[in-house]
Design a protein around this nucleic acid. Structure first.
Lengths: 240, 240
DNA sequence: ATATGACTGAATATACGTATCTAGTCATAC
DNA sequence: GTATGACTAGATACGTATATTCAGTCATAT
């Protein structure tokens, strides 16, 4: 063994993070299979090939571990949206549609947003979204809408509170409303399109994105996603 | 006592109905006060000044009684909307707004639509809205939208399934989405306005009601409400 | 310093017997 | 025919005692 051999117990931050990710991978796998309530830390440690005590070197409690898992999912989702929209200049509805679809694509976020008790169990009841983060997200979105309004793409006769309520209500309805019976049934993809259209028509001014405003719209979108990502990443770091 | 004295045990249909209403009044009072789970038929019979057996001369089970109660509320709500809109020629959003507000005004319907388990308890879990009635309601609404479309007041590029999904999602979000924290909080009345605006902008064509179309719009509205009332009344009659 | 996994106690599930409650019935009265 | 309310059976709540599970700890090993 050399002087700086891997035999040394001291771990680099990268190694720590890689192991945390392996543990979270195992947790994600097991929650997807058995649900939160039935997933024990012994299961997770076995799947991740670490001792249970090691988990407590990363998180102070079981809940903290799964909180971190959800936060990592959120970061990954936002990164995916960030990639999709890179450089594009879409109206509000387009952004909303991508957000909705990327959320639906990820089982844990989908379960979280659908309020699926089978998957998330007690986590749903006890977990509270931190007010600071929620407000920061709202503020970032409001700023995004503000830029679009300056370019005449968003109505100027709605207060920020009204805009946020429209967004919240539309999203909530989209995720939670039960599917309609057969003659009216639509799959989630089509419903996401309708959600986008609803938001676009309710919040938008009706004017299309002009070539002149395209650059600024693209920048505002990127800026919003960056801010959201920053908040999401910060929250994830808090969870180690 | 005369020959046709009230001493005769034979009851007229009007007397029967009046007594059923008294029983339903008592049930409404008690459910409002204690919730469905804690309201016993002994309570109801005592409050309505009838023997418990009498209740079973009207309904075959406890559940049937409370089903009738909910159905009566629905009829009363629709009658109120019918009165409000009498002769008026409002666009879709206006009708939606009135429906939403009249539902919110009635504690039992509000509880039903909000999915309030405290008030409705087990009734929420076991009660299924009959598919036939739901479909008939949808059909009636689709017909209403059809007339408005003929007059250019409603978009023609959405399928009926898409229209119904927008309606269902918007209503669901309006009733179920939790209130936003303080800087963005709006009361239910304002949210009803936003619901109306959302539906109007998403389903509507953007053209205003012209004097020429006013009469037909008013008639279509009245026709829809009449059909809805007919269905609601039929369902109520089924529940005696 | 870092990692482990056997260990512990608090919480949760299971089992069982008893008490209470109440939806629905029906013999009786009018 | 109509109305009653005491009655019953089945369900539900409660109390208690026992078993099991699992989050979190810590003495030990490297």
């Amino acid at each position: 063994m050399t002087a700086e051999s891997s035999d040394r117990r001291r771990r680099t931050p990268e190694q720590r993070r890689a192991r945390a990710d392996r543990i979270l991978d195992a947790a994600a796998e097991l929650v997807g299979r058995w649900g939160y309530d039935k997933t024990t830390l012994d299961d997770v440690s076995r799947h991740a090939h670490v001792a249970k005590g090691t988990i407590y070197l990363h998180w102070k409690s079981r809940e903290a571990l799964f909180t971190a898992l959800l936060r990592r999912e959120r970061v990954l989702m936002l990164e995916a949206v960030r990639l999709c929209t890179a450089g594009r200049a879409e109206p509000v509805g387009g952004l909303v549609r991508r957000l909705a679809l990327e959320m639906l694509r990820r089982p844990l976020l989908k379960a979280l947003l659908l309020g699926d008790g089978e998957v998330l169990g007690a986590l749903l009841r006890h977990k509270r979204t931190s007010p600071e983060a929620a407000e920061a997200m709202s503020t970032a979105f409001a700023a995004y809408l503000g830029v679009l309004r300056e370019h005449g793409l968003v109505r100027s006769d709605l207060t920020p509170a009204e805009q946020q309520n429209v967004m919240a209500t539309a999203f909530y309805g989209f995720f939670h409303a039960p599917a309609l019976p057969d003659p009216f049934h639509l799959d989630m993809e089509r419903r996401a399109d309708l959600l986008a259209e609803t938001v676009q028509r309710t919040l938008g001014s009706g004017h299309p994105v002009t070539p002149e405003s395209a650059a600024q719209v693209a920048e505002a979108t990127a800026r919003y996603l960056d801010r959201a990502l920053e908040i999401a990443r910060r929250k994830l770091e808090e969870s180690l």
